[in-house]
Amino acid sequence: MPFSINTVHALVLRYLYLYTRHPVRLVELVFWPLVDLLVWGFLTTYLQRHGAGDFPSSISFLIGGMILWDVLFRSQQGVAISFLEDVWTRNLLNVFVAPVRTAEYVGATCVVGLLRVGVTLVILTLVAALAYQFHLTSLGLGLLPFLGNLILFGWFLGMISTALIMRYGQAAESLAWAIPFFIQPLAAVFYPVSVLPSWLQPIALTLPCTPIFEGMRTVLSGHPVPWANVQSALVLNLVWGTLAALFFAANLRYVRKSGLLVKVATQ
């Protein structure tokens, strides 16, 4: 069998044990997103009170952008941090000498990413609704494809982060946190692509998350779901997914050839 669900289940179980044994790990999933939400939420409240014209009706973009950005970020973190957990606990060799296919290992980290997104999303959605009357469901039918595309892109960024950490070792582990923020200025999370200088706009449009954030603003402005944006995101995700898989595989081949895999695993 080329892909074993049982193997993925076993690997996910290891992360579940970790999170349930150490509630402090759950705090990490809740604390930072909540801090972000509070900052952006109060900023939104302030701007709504002191803004002018149609400013108040559109300002919920900030909260929506923050929540959707967190979906992408937690998804990426699920993949990259799961790999780092194995490095930090010197368990990576045990996993790599077990009958685990690369696709199963990556698949398990993606499932962990999905679970992390689930926990964070539920909490942020509730707090945003209760504290700021921002309802994520106001994204309507677009909500699921928006979330799906962001989760996919998060996985692919996670694979790229993991590949770089494998290749450059623990010195590169800050990339696990930094990579999403490299793209954030171009991702149109809090402002439209049109704000960017004209030469940066084509680059921004190569990111699958850009049409999603643009689409979110369209829906929150009272327009129907821009399905063309969802379609663009999906096509871009296919391209990014293929490139991320090739990049991961090439790096895995390289670290096996150069002996870096063992170094990363035992350092």
Partner: peptide
Amino acid sequence: FSSAYTALPSNLL
């Protein structure tokens, strides 16, 4: 495989 230089995750039972 077992090695003095690898470990099982220290934070699990």
